[in-house]
């Protein structure tokens, strides 16, 4: 594992997935590639954590899925945000910003 990769914090994966799907519906592979791209390779989401997260969020009603055609004409399962999912994303984003501001201040105070 390259040294610039970090372990995902608990709960962060959910937010990343929700955030990724906020723009457009995507299939599983699309989501993991997108996260890797956006975070410049810091996070690589393996199927072993991606699929449990997708299924859990779908069961909670944040995502819904449907079968569709991929770019290269293969069948794939697409996930998109529901209204509850959007609300969840907003809540998570707010929380995350609070945390990052707080942690940032704490670190500045010491330097």
């Amino acid at each position: 594992m390259p040294s610039n990769q970090v372990e995902l914090l608990q709960g962060t994966l959910d937010m990343l997935i929700l955030n990724t799907l906020a723009l457009a519906p995507l299939h599983g592979l699309g989501i993991s590639q997108r996260i890797e791209q956006v975070t410049r390779g810091t996070f690589q989401v393996k199927p072993g954590s991606l699929f449990p997260a997708l299924h859990r969020m779908e069961e909670r009603g944040w995502l819904k899925s449907s079968w569709g055609e991929s770019d290269n004409n293969r069948r794939a399962k697409y996930y998109e945000l529901t209204r509850a999912g959007r609300r969840q994303l907003e809540a998570e984003t707010r929380r995350w910003k609070q945390i990052s501001v707080a942690v940032g201040r704490a670190l500045e105070a010491n330097s």
Partner: peptide, 17 residues
């Protein structure tokens, strides 16, 4: 069944990639 399909479709997409 749906889970099976999803995983194999993921694999196929990855192979194609």
């Amino acid at each position: 069944q749906a889970l099976d399909d999803e995983i194999s479709s993921y694999t196929e997409l990855l192979v194609a990639e």
